[in-house]
């Protein structure tokens, strides 16, 4: 407990008086400012702060928490070991993992299903913090996932790995489990319904 320090107090100044009662000085003063903005923005648009969104994008912070992605090992296999840390810590309970076994000794356990329901996600970033394998990240910079269908927000494991999968599809031949959205989806919707 820290000791209280004596506060220094300042009384705010209330305005009033004859000049103010005249209305006009303040009105002219106000008009001067609005006109300055007006002419600057009409002539050079130098003060305009709006961005024309879809064409122009705002700079986002390098720490921006965007859509998740699942990282991969150097040999191209998913880094995640299905330890359920992220699923446990998630306050929105939007991660759904089902672990599977691999005969490959360098993998052993890996996620058969790894769904994130981005509609429920609150983008808190706790899953990233909780992952002991650096397997999940939110550094994609994707913040706009708008869609008219709920089902598009169900991101499956392969969609979350897409950055990698796009380039290196051949590296997954031995994966014995669903790789397409349609195959994986029934499980995630079943989870939602349950």
């Amino acid at each position: 407990m820290q000791t209280a320090k004596k506060p220094s107090v300042k009384t705010v100044q209330r305005q009033g008086g004859f000049l103010i009662d005249l209305y006009l000085p303040a009105i002219i003063g106000g008009l001067r400012i609005t006109l300055r903005h007006f002419f600057r923005n009409v002539i050079t648009q130098s003060d305009v702060v709006t961005i024309s969104y879809p064409e122009q994008k705002r700079r986002i912070s390098p720490r921006w928490r965007g859509r998740h992605r699942l990282t991969v090992r150097e040999d191209g296999f998913i880094k995640c070991v299905a330890c359920y840390m992220c699923e446990t810590v998630c306050p929105a309970k939007c991660i759904h993992i089902e672990a599977g076994e691999m005969p490959d000794k360098s993998v052993e356990k890996y996620p058969v299903v790894f769904d994130i329901d981005e509609l429920r996600c609150v983008f808190c970033g706790l899953c990233v913090e909780a992952c002991p394998k650096d397997a999940i990240r939110m550094d994609t910079g994707i913040y706009s996932m708008a869609s008219t269908e709920r089902v598009t927000f169900d991101y499956t494991r392969n969609m979350l790995m897409d950055a990698h999968a796009k380039t290196d599809k051949t590296k997954f031949p031995s994966t014995p489990l669903p790789l397409t959205q349609e195959e994986a989806l029934p499980q995630s919707t079943a989870k939602l319904a349950g």
């Binding site: 609005t34 903005h37 007006f38 923005n41 009409v42 648009q45 003060d47 305009v48 702060v49 709006t50 024309s52």
Partner: peptide, 13 residues
């Protein structure tokens, strides 16, 4: 349009 110029915006476009 004019009000958005005053308010540092672009306005309807």
């Amino acid at each position: 349009k004019w009000m958005s110029a005053v308010q540092d915006r672009i306005g309807p476009n």
